[in-house]
Amino acid sequence: MTSFNHLFRVMWRPKFRSMNQLLFFNLLAVVVTMVYQIWRRGFAQLEMISTVTIWGSIFGFVAFVLLARQNEQVVISDTYRLLPTSDTKLYLANLGTSLVALLYVGVIQVILLAVGTAMSGNIIRMWLQLNIHMSAAAWHDLAFYGTSAVLWGIVVALWAWAVITLIHFGTNTISAFLPNVQQRIIKVVLAIILTGVLLRFLTWFAELESKLYAAFTGIASVLEGGVWFDLLGLVVVVIVVATANIVMMHRWVEAKY
């Protein structure tokens, strides 16, 4: 049987390669914009923070979409479905490698931002000089919002990928029980219906979660505790959706050939 470690490595390699290709174009875009800015306004007026942030956001989103596409290709490909391992391990390794690849892109963006700041980040440097003497409470808030933003980013990415797979697998599973005519149209209609049902369920779940939090604490979920409670709710949704995906993968969803 293929160990989880080896599974992770074989799934990581192609994703790492495509993320590096993407980062190359990201860097190219930043450099071209920088050269254009220097040509237009001169080096003294160069402001790299917004350039790096805008390109980072665009390429970060592209990375997220590319990884979502790769996730779906892996789970219906003979190459991966033939590996001697359980469907649970295969699914988790796929999701895990995508997450690590996205974090890798995030870390590179932070490095680019740091380099950009060091080169010509007047706004950030001024902000740091003004706030270097922040109170302990202010630093705590900064740490809290920073940590929760990163955690929310991770859980939202996992949630989005799991939901995309749920729609993909749900469509495949239902269409397998329908006649083999106009399958493409049937799949599109099923995907739209499933997306609608899923959105309604998630809205209901979010309302239920808010009510539960209010019932237990007597306050609305906008404070610190509420942020963690909402995050926990989303983690539960990710676990439930991922479990449903693994069950469908194990019982009905075939590799495409």
């Binding site: 490909s77 003979d78 190459t79 991966y80 033939l82 050939y257």
Partner: peptide
Amino acid sequence: RAFVSFSEALQGFR
């Protein structure tokens, strides 16, 4: 699958 070697079409590769 641990016992089976199947001639797959290499669709998982770019």
